[in-house]
Nucleic acid binder design. Structure first.
Lengths: 257, 257
DNA sequence: TATAGTGCAATGGTCAAACCAATTGACAGT
DNA sequence: ACTGTCAATTGGTTTGACCATTGCACTATA
């Protein structure tokens, strides 16, 4: 009776090692990426083999892989295999979504974040934009002009315009964050309002931004971007309030029946 | 033959219908958060019940939950239950790690991102910092002074100093991104060098930043933060090069045996 | 009565085996 | 040379069981 817990104790001696098997697999993938054994576009071994290699069951491995898949790190195709994502355009989207939902992020806060990030990006883009970068930005600008009257198509080019600037900045981290925030704002906007009328004003701002970047005038590029985003935020607030008034009028009318 | 592809085309118009069950569960959780049925700290139903509610198997549900767990959205405790995270300090860490690994992100790029974000945060903090915010920042500054000579402890206060400023800015999105980048940079730094000697210089910069924020001088706060980060980057480059030289000397010595 | 110990139930964690579904690629027929 | 077909490969899902940890109520004891 007295001696009973000898091996129990030795098992308790390593309590901090308590990582889930999933986290260990994720860590392992990281190491493989770091060592160069895996890189963008690489095909992972089939799940059954990989599970055997790691000496874990296939469901356990799948759990970890699915977690990476949800984050957009890997893509799995039945019949083909599982691949490391070639580019990571949406790594921050899910986390950002949940952050916004759980913390009740004010859209103003996101506009503020976008202002800081995109003014910085515009500044960098003006310093570094190559001929190809400028061409890409210009194409989106002209796409916007052609899309006057078509709100969806216009917004599409609008997004791509800002993405082109972000890419021209040469900073992948910043451009990834920017892209996520912008995407989220456009989603919210689309939920609030379907039609927007200020095509000309938006184009004028974008013209100014493009022109400044083309001349490698970082100071002007920064100012133009700041002005544009300020105007965009005002527009958004106006649209939202209109919608809110409309809704409250509807609901009060409904209540008064 | 001429008419054939009518419905084929219409089927190609909606290729995104391919959702896995995992993504549907994640989507469902999002909806529950949006509707207010779940909020920060909420306890989810036990897996067995939840699986039955959603009419899916428990492993399938678990896969989705584990994905959220890896992202830091939920915490699961055996015997207790699964809970929505009360705060989300680390939502961006995993995605950022993988982005850095896959895209071979240059540390200079991260310093650049940090410069843009933190100068913006310092500016906002100077405008908005409350008495409590200032107190929190000051405490970390004094902690740094007490920790002179103890690199690890010093860096700890250094991180918290910047986090305190981020919180004072009132912008959770930006502060989350900043925190992730800073964390990653400190990790890299810790791998490269164990001892740093410029305690006094670092403290001088932090003093300037704190002072500017305390006086609500946003322009000076911004400049001080920019100067500090510039100096920090130079230090990092110097340390890295020293380590690289040391390594290359070692390896060439090894080769010449 | 209060407190500490003990055991049971609830809950998350893992595994095994089997089957389904989609894709790919080789093979046969034209 | 082209095209349709079928089988092998591979990811997707389920069922069922068992283990490990925690929480809590119950009980024995001071």
């Amino acid at each position: 009776m007295v001696v009973s817990s000898s091996h129990d104790l030795s098992r308790r001696m390593a309590p901090i090692d308590r990582f889930g098997i999933t986290e260990l697999v994720v860590q392992r993938i990281k190491e493989l990426l770091e060592s160069g054994a895996l890189k963008a576009g690489s095909r992972l071994p089939p799940e059954r083999e990989l599970a055997e290699m790691l000496n874990i069951s296939r469901p356990s491995l799948r759990t970890a892989l699915k977690a990476l898949s949800v984050m957009g790190i890997i893509n799995a195709k039945p019949g083909a295999g599982t691949f490391i994502a070639d580019s990571l355009p949406e790594v921050f989207t899910e986390p950002m979504h949940f952050m916004a939902l759980i913390h009740n992020i004010d859209p103003r806060e996101m506009f503020e974040a976008r202002r800081i990030i995109e003014t910085g990006l515009a500044e960098l883009a003006a310093e570094r934009a190559s001929a190809e970068d400028l061409q890409a930005i210009k194409e989106q600008l002209e796409g916007m002009k052609r899309a006057i009257g078509n709100t969806d198509q216009f917004l599409e080019h609008d997004i791509h315009f800002h993405q082109a600037i972000a890419r021209a900045s040469g900073n992948k981290v910043m451009s990834g964050v920017m892209d996520t925030i912008a995407q989220l704002l456009y989603e919210m906007r689309r939920q609030v309002v379907k039609r927007t009328s200020d095509f000309e004003e938006a184009i004028a701002w974008h013209e100014r931004i493009y022109d400044a970047i083309r001349r490698h005038d970082s100071k002007r590029a920064k100012e133009a971007m700041a002005g544009h985003l300020h105007a965009a935020e005002l527009t958004w607030v106006r649209e939202t309030k209109a919608k809110a008034n409309y809704n409250s009028r509807r609901s009060s009318r409904r209540r008064s029946r």
